[in-house]
Computed example of a mutant assay.
Amino acid sequence: MSDQYTSSQLTRGEVYTRKQLKALFSIKDATLNNGIFRPKGTPSIWLFVTQTKTADRTQYEDKLEGDILTMQGQTLGRTDDLIISHQRRGDELVLFYRAHKSQYPGYGFEYIGTFRYVSHAGAQPTGFTLQKIGEDPITRVLETLSDDLQGEHYFDVADIEDERKKVLRAIVQRRGQHPFRRSLLKAYKGSCCITGCKIEEILEAAHIYPYKGEKSNAVANGLLLRADLHTLFDLKHLSVDPKTYQVHLSAKLIGTEYQVYEGNKLLLPEQAENMPSRSSLASHFSEFIAQHTGLSVSTPVK
């Protein structure tokens, strides 16, 4: 097994039996037969949902309607936190679904896609509401912000660039910042400082204060962020309070899958010299506030 999302090896709409999944992912754990299963060594949580159960099974109330799944967790609640906190840990929720046990050959399940936690209520069992999400986090972010970005063709050099076009071009180019990124990967031990995600391929080096030459590539002027969060940070739909290191989101992201990070504190480096610069964060945070309130704010930092 690996630290890659298992969804990258699955095809939406394809039917998989547990035996096929066992062979595909080299699974030896017998708990694969449970309704909620985490393949060892992966950031994935598999949900096996049968809407209409046979009489000998616990009659959990589970139903998929469009992009919304309502389901009940295990009776004792031992796996509830896997679902509730999956985004904070950088885990994905993978749904395998069938209307009834014999719907597909070999008692298989259709792979529906990845889902996100929305809410929960009650206990023993806990009732969950989950929502289907897209496969590409960058695409989801840009779709969320489509009203802001509509009509901005940032590769058209004949146009006069505004600040957002520069930001979007930087998103495309920034993977070339190898030394800066390597330093941040080391300082943050290969984990996104907001989600804890450890998938190196989607971790990026984010400048807190915009790049102004090599001196800008100091570790203290950077955050190691998952690609979609880097985009949100650059577009100032996400910022960090310089006094508390708490994450704050724009109103547009409240009610989305990102809301789980609102108010969370950054996962900080162990070495004092690698701590994010409070003055750089103050500059970004004041621009974030001004962009979303229309107020010009000076954030004093001690």
Rank of each mutant, 00 (worst) to 15 (best):
T70K: 14
L24P: 00
I199T: 03
S279M: 01
F128T: 05
A55S: 15
I254M: 15
R38I: 11
Q291I: 02
S283C: 06
K40H: 05
T231S: 11
G113Q: 07
P242H: 08
L268P: 06
D241H: 10
G196Q: 04
T17K: 00
I160E: 15
D29C: 03
D29I: 01
K165M: 15
K265L: 02
P39F: 08
I84C: 12
V94F: 06
P276M: 03
H86N: 14
R182F: 12
K165A: 14
D228P: 02
V49T: 12
S298Q: 07
R116K: 13
K243I: 09
G35C: 09
L47V: 07
V172P: 00
L69P: 01
D81V: 04
Q20W: 01
M71P: 04
S26Y: 09
V15I: 13
Y16H: 04
N274H: 15
D156Q: 03
Y261L: 12
S277Q: 03
R278L: 00
K165Q: 15
G196H: 06
I27M: 05
E163P: 01
K236D: 14
D147G: 15
E262L: 13
Q131F: 02
T70D: 10
A121S: 15
E110M: 12
E270R: 13
S119W: 10
L225E: 07
S277A: 04
L76D: 14
T58N: 10
F285G: 01
R278K: 13
S44M: 02
Y104M: 03
G108W: 03
Y261R: 04
L95A: 09
N34M: 10
H207E: 10
R57E: 15
K186F: 09
R278D: 00
Q4T: 03
F285K: 01
Y211R: 03
I254D: 06
K265P: 01
G113W: 07
D62V: 00
T129A: 08
A282E: 02
L21G: 05
T231P: 00
V260P: 02
L225G: 06
F288Y: 11
L149K: 11
T299L: 08
I68Y: 01
P242K: 08
V94W: 01
L32I: 12
R38K: 14
R98D: 04
S146Q: 15
Q4N: 06
N264G: 09
H86S: 13
P210E: 11
F25K: 04
H120S: 14
P269I: 05
Y188E: 06
G255N: 07
S7K: 03
Q103T: 04
S146A: 15
A55K: 14
H292Y: 05
E163N: 14
V118S: 13
H207D: 06
F48T: 06
V172T: 08
I202A: 01
T42K: 05
R164F: 02
I160Q: 15
G222W: 03
Q131D: 07
S280P: 00
H100E: 13
A206W: 04
D80L: 05
V247K: 09
G73E: 08
K189T: 12
S298R: 06
C193Q: 10
M1N: 08
P39K: 02
K22Q: 15
Q74P: 02
K302S: 14
K63F: 00
G77K: 06
R88I: 02
L295W: 10
V219R: 02
Q20A: 13
Q246L: 08
G41W: 01
D81G: 10
P105K: 12
Q259R: 07
I138N: 05
